[in-house]
Design a protein around this nucleic acid. Structure first.
Length: 592
RNA sequence: GGGGUCGUAGUUAAGCCUGGUUAUAACGCCGGCCUGUCGAGCCGGAGGCCGCGGGUUCGAAUCCCGUCGACCCCGCCA
């Protein structure tokens, strides 16, 4: 080990050396990626965040450097000074960016050694994820991980640039804030100086950004961490990052225009892709009807067809009972799948059953018509009508689910996605944006026996629907919108309620008492009395957006230090027990 | 809370169904040789609580029960 002196400080990044640099003496700092020791000659691939370059230790160039290089091992940290040379003819390596050049080492400093690493630091890795997470500092050293983190940086940079250019103010909101009902479970932080009281980490800065509008800041954005104590998934972490936006004196169109501009800039700056504007729009109801999802993947077609009318009057009682009780019968055509096996059908039935379907009926489309174990219950006119309505052609398979509207949508939606992937109908290079609009304002929660807000309680109803709040609350549409990209919800927002009376009415519809509203949201209700401007906004899930842009399947691959499914950090060991003294200071007794 | 997949040298896997001498391979690691390699090559070597605990058996990596952990999914996530 040697001191790091000025003469060995970096002049270039390894990955940035080009034929332009031939003849120059450069100093490189980095990690030994690989060493190939020929006894006489030693080759070292030296790596830094920009890439790697071959360093040649030749005793005839410098004996001392060559002798030292014999000690080098993987992941040693070194500084090398030497001349950039074009590689001798026939030894170029066209498979790497710096393959035409090499560094003839004249001086080597070993700045630090490394134990043998627990797994190879290669781009392609099949190492178990728990090993990667335990040694995250090594995992993050892998070039593919560094590329993703750089991509993430580019996305946040493009975002900041865009909002700065468009007159938005970047303002911070508290992390130690107040627990609110509705929504996800809160992460709580005990207050030492207020025994028995707790802060909550924000699920989002929702109320604060609305307050900022009341305060006249007009256009706000923040790239901000949010916390939700719910179970994890491939695209869900307990702490995640939102691009949070709020604007005053705007309607939905202004938000769409501004946010499409943001997406356009991000995709241009980061991927060099130009996106088609304006983005498509689709009412929630239509998305559910056609794609069985409120976040449809529009990279492929395969739309769902309603055949409730077409099957009426058959002898098939399963369908008849569903229709009598107000349900629907709908079909999905799987192209050229008529020949699939019984076990394949079982597998697809399983997929549909996740959505609640109690069975999956099917018709094989043959030259002469439809065939199926249940075909005997249908007249020739029924079968013909089904085939015509679905547009199925010979060789196709028609899958049918009959149930409540919700179950049919969910089941066929899942089946559609499953088949889309399996039949390779999804063009991975495409980016299909979609605004889903006209969400219902409310849903009925069977468990709690009350209405709950579909988006959140501060979402404004569509003005025309306000009279319905009393007559038929479930039919009230919200001024809410989601941005969907390739079947993933990447953002959601709404025009907010800016009048106290309407906000109070909303709380009462949600069965939140006046008393409770005052305690939980009093500050918002108060603020709305003092000149609150009309306003609205949106929040994007930065992590999900980066997942799509970087083309990775796990949210853990776009977060430098993620948690496992049990919300544990395998590197630091968090969460962990704390000492008695610490608990006592916080006035907390454990009950385990 | 529930369903599923997985857990064997540092890493990735085989062996497990059908129990039987010393648990197999590749990569990595250590030593030697080697001046144009880039997954360098050749020769030699070390390395295992078969996740953990219990049971069945003359005998368990292998069969059974439990448990822990990682991952995927359902519920949950305004």
């Amino acid at each position: 080990m040697e001191p790091f002196t000025g003469e060995m400080k970096r002049t270039h990044y390894c990955g940035a050396i080009t034929t332009e640099d031939v003849g120059k003496t450069v100093t490189l700092c980095g990690w030994v990626h690989r060493r190939r020791d020929h006894g006489g000659l030693i080759f070292v691939d030296l790596r830094d965040r920009e890439g790697f370059v071959q360093v040649v230790f030749n005793p005839q160039v410098n004996r001392e450097a060559h002798e030292k290089a014999e000690k080098l091992r993987s992941e040693f940290v070194i500084s090398v000074r030497g001349r950039v040379e074009r590689r001798p003819e026939g030894t170029e390596n066209p498979s790497i960016p710096t393959g035409e050049v090499e560094i003839l080492a004249e001086k080597l400093s070993i700045l630090n050694e490394s134990k043998p690493v627990p797994f190879p630091l290669e781009d392609e890795t099949d190492v178990a994820e728990n090993v990667r997470l335990k040694y995250r500092y090594l995992d993050l050293r892998r070039p593919s991980m560094q590329r993703v983190m750089i991509t993430r940086h580019q996305v946040t940079r493009a975002t900041r640039d865009y909002f700065y250019e468009n007159g938005f103010l970047e303002i911070e909101t508290p992390f130690l804030t107040k627990s609110t009902p509705e929504g996800a479970r809160d992460y709580l932080v005990p207050s030492r100086v207020n025994p028995g009281a707790f802060y909550a980490l924000p699920q989002s800065p929702q109320l604060f950004k609305q307050i900022l509008m009341v305060s006249g800041y007009d256009r706000y954005f923040q790239i901000v961490r949010c916390f939700r104590d719910e179970d994890l998934r491939a695209d869900r972490q307990p702490e995640f990052t939102q691009i949070d936006v709020e604007m005053s004196f705007v309607d939905r169109e202004d938000i769409f225009e501004t946010m499409e501009g943001l997406m356009e800039k991000i995709f241009r700056d980061v991927l060099g892709v130009s996106v088609n504007r304006p983005f498509r729009r689709m009412p929630y109801r239509q998305a559910m009807d056609l794609y069985g999802s409120d976040k449809p993947d529009l990279r492929f077609g395969m739309e769902i067809t309603d055949i409730t009318e077409e099957v009426k009057g058959s002898d098939f009682n399963v369908f008849n009972r569903v229709i009598e009780s107000g349900g629907v019968v709908r079909a999905l055509v799987a192209p050229q799948m008529a020949g699939i096996s019984r076990s394949k059908i079982d597998e697809l039935t399983e997929v549909a059953s996740i959505g609640g379907a109690k069975g999956l009926a099917y018709f094989k489309v043959e030259e002469g018509g439809l065939s199926s174990p249940i075909a005997k219950f249908f007249g020739e006119n029924h079968l013909k009508a089904i085939q015509e309505k679905t547009g199925a052609e010979a060789g196709d398979m028609i899958f049918i689910v009959a149930d409540t509207w919700e179950v049919v949508c969910d089941s066929l939606g899942r089946l559609r996605l499953h088949l889309g992937r399996e039949l390779n109908l999804i063009d991975e290079g495409r980016y299909e944006f979609l605004w889903v609009i006209d969400f219902p304002l409310l849903e009925y929660d069977e468990e709690e026996k009350r209405f709950v807000a579909m988006h959140h309680p501060f979402t404004s109803p569509v003005p025309d629907d306000i009279p319905l709040l009393d007559e038929d609350p479930l039919r009230v549409r919200a001024q809410a919108y989601d941005l969907v990209l390739n079947g993933s919800e990447v953002g959601g927002g709404s025009i907010r309620i800016h009048q106290r009376a309407l906000q109070e009415k909303m709380f009462s519809l949600l069965n939140i008492s006046e008393e409770e509203a005052r305690v939980k949201f009093g500050f918002l209700l108060d603020a709305l009395q003092y000149g609150a401007p009309p306003h609205g906004g949106i929040a994007f899930g930065l992590d999900r957006l980066v997942m799509i842009i970087a083309g990775v399947d796990s949210i853990r691959d776009v977060i430098p230090f993620p948690k496992t499914q049990k919300a544990v950090c395998l590197m630091s060991g968090a969460p962990s027990p704390v000492g008695k003294e610490q608990l006592k200071e916080l006035h907390i007794k454990l009950d385990l």
